[in-house]
Simulated assay, not measured.
Amino acid sequence: MTFKKTLLGIACLASLTVGTAQADFPNRDIRVIVPAAAGGGTDAIVRKASNIAEESLPVSMYVENVEGGMTATGLLQLMKARPDGQTIAAITYDSIITIPWKNMLPGFNMDKMRMIARITSEADAITVPESSPYKTLDDLIAAAKEKPNSLRVGIQNMGARTHLTLLQLQEQTGAKFKIVSYDNSAASQKEALLNGEVDAVVTSLGDLAPLIESGQARGLVEFSDTQNEGFPNVPPVTETDTGLDLQMGSFIIMVAPARTPDDVIEKLEATYHKAYESDEFQQWLKQIGVTPAWLGADDVTQWANDTQQQLFSTMDELVDKGVLEK
């Protein structure tokens, strides 16, 4: 009887300890993993949002860049972290689409993490040098049809998001571009655009904002159905004369390890929502040309599942047609 009482007491104490730890969350600084290089768009947005968010907390939020494997390296660290909310991460398109579709992390699926919120959405866009003779998307498509494989377009990683965007554009228009890959680096795309190595690049307008603002580059189109307020001279694809409705881009979603308690997720969601709604964050996003796109934990989980299924289907069809390799 004494032994049973002792075991019961230990179990109650453990339960009480866990409950207290959750109630006290956060009780130490929160590590925020960014699975991309420092200085990029994702890094800047997560740092800005987290810096504002920590103003509502009794602890600091420190961002740590963990590069590699199209976000796989950072994602692995998140999944191995204790599910107590003290380690969270920002994930993007590759974490939800590229990695599971290519089976880069065997056994990985979205059940391995819990989503906190989506904070931004960035449509892909086509940008050309200011000196380019192509003034519209129609001009670019017409030239690529007239001389197939002559126009060089820079993307980030073969088989990744910007590659898929360009493949879909070719599939829907009949245009043929010479595709040049730059290992997941908008910085490399910028350099290639400036030195004439490519005729155009596919990435978000936010990635090339300094070039566009300085007059060195010009956005032709954004693959979205809404006007980007930060770039009023760049039309969404649905307002071009092409008749296309190709919408593609990336996003930033904050996530925690699977099994993180509900009350911890709720507190993190509320903290980031407050930061998201602040005038400081909203005005800053407008300045860099990124679209605020909040979805809370429940909504973003459903949205991510729907998006994954839709894009998996599109990518599988392109594989069947021999357009994309898995």
Rank of each mutant, 00 (worst) to 15 (best):
M1S: 06
M1K: 12
L7V: 08
I10C: 02
L13Q: 03
L13K: 07
L16V: 14
T20H: 04
T20L: 06
Q22L: 05
Q22A: 03
D24V: 05
D24E: 07
R28L: 00
I30V: 13
A36Q: 15
A37W: 00
G39I: 02
G40P: 00
G40W: 00
A44V: 05
R47I: 07
K48W: 13
A49N: 11
I52F: 01
E55Y: 06
S56V: 14
S56Q: 08
M61Y: 07
M61W: 02
V66D: 00
T73I: 08
L76R: 05
L78M: 08
L78N: 04
M79H: 00
A81P: 13
A81Q: 14
P83N: 09
P83S: 07
P83Y: 09
D84A: 00
I91M: 01
T92I: 07
T92N: 11
I97G: 06
F108Q: 15
D111N: 03
R114V: 04
A117R: 01
S121F: 09
A125H: 06
V128K: 15
T136Q: 08
L137F: 08
D138G: 15
L140S: 14
I141C: 06
I141D: 10
A144D: 12
A144F: 04
K145S: 11
S150E: 09
R152Q: 08
I155E: 05
Q156P: 02
T162A: 13
H163W: 13
L164I: 04
T165Q: 10
Q168K: 10
Q172I: 07
A175R: 05
F177Q: 12
I179A: 12
V180A: 05
N184C: 02
N184D: 08
S185E: 08
A186W: 01
K190I: 06
N195L: 03
A200G: 05
V202H: 04
V202G: 08
T203R: 12
T203C: 11
D207A: 13
D207Q: 12
D207W: 00
L208E: 04
L208K: 01
A209H: 04
L211Y: 01
Q227N: 11
V234W: 12
P235T: 10
T238E: 07
T238K: 15
T242R: 06
G243V: 06
D245C: 04
G249E: 11
S250K: 02
F251R: 05
V255T: 14
A258G: 04
D262T: 10
K267C: 06
E269G: 10
A270N: 09
A270D: 10
A270S: 07
Y272K: 02
H273S: 05
E280P: 13
Q287Y: 15
I288G: 05
G289I: 04
G289T: 14
V290P: 01
V290N: 11
P292A: 08
P292D: 15
D298N: 13
V300I: 06
Q302G: 09
N305C: 04
N305F: 12
D306V: 07
Q308M: 15
Q309E: 14
Q309I: 02
L311R: 13
S313E: 14
E317P: 14
L318Y: 07
V319H: 11
V323H: 15
